[in-house]
Design a protein around this nucleic acid. Sequence first.
DNA 1: GCCAACGTTGGC
DNA 2: GCCAACGTTGGC
Length: 134
Amino acid sequence: MSYWIIKSDPESYSWEQMKKDKKTFWDGVRNYQARNNLKLMKEGDIALFYHSNSDKALVGEVEIIKEYYQDPTTDDDRWVCVDVRYLCDYKKPLTLEVMKANKGFSEVGLIKQSRLSVMPITIKEYELIKSFVD
DNA sequence: GCCAACGTTGGC
DNA sequence: GCCAACGTTGGC
């Protein structure tokens, strides 16, 4: 059981849309490092949904319900996607600002490598996040 | 809207 | 196989 952060620009796919859809496939990853992380995801893993740009905050959680398969939006067999379903909303979204101010998050990819769109987090980091969001 | 960081591409 | 040029992303 692993924990992840997946990032989305609300202009292309927002959390509101995610909640409306209930489940979706996480496609469009075109970066090797992010792709490799997608491939490591297992059914039942938890991914935290991060809004980049306007919100810059973790807004809720989804569950991985299907492991990686060929991304149907491209013929290029280098790229994969996974299926996720809506799990829960955060009462208080955790902003990038707060994460930057707290030492416990200093190793999180969001801080260290802001362009990576899929990244693992440790259970400790996950628990720390949970202590902020409700 | 600017710019820094980083990934990718292509010429050599 | 190196590196310059270029494109993209995301924070500010």
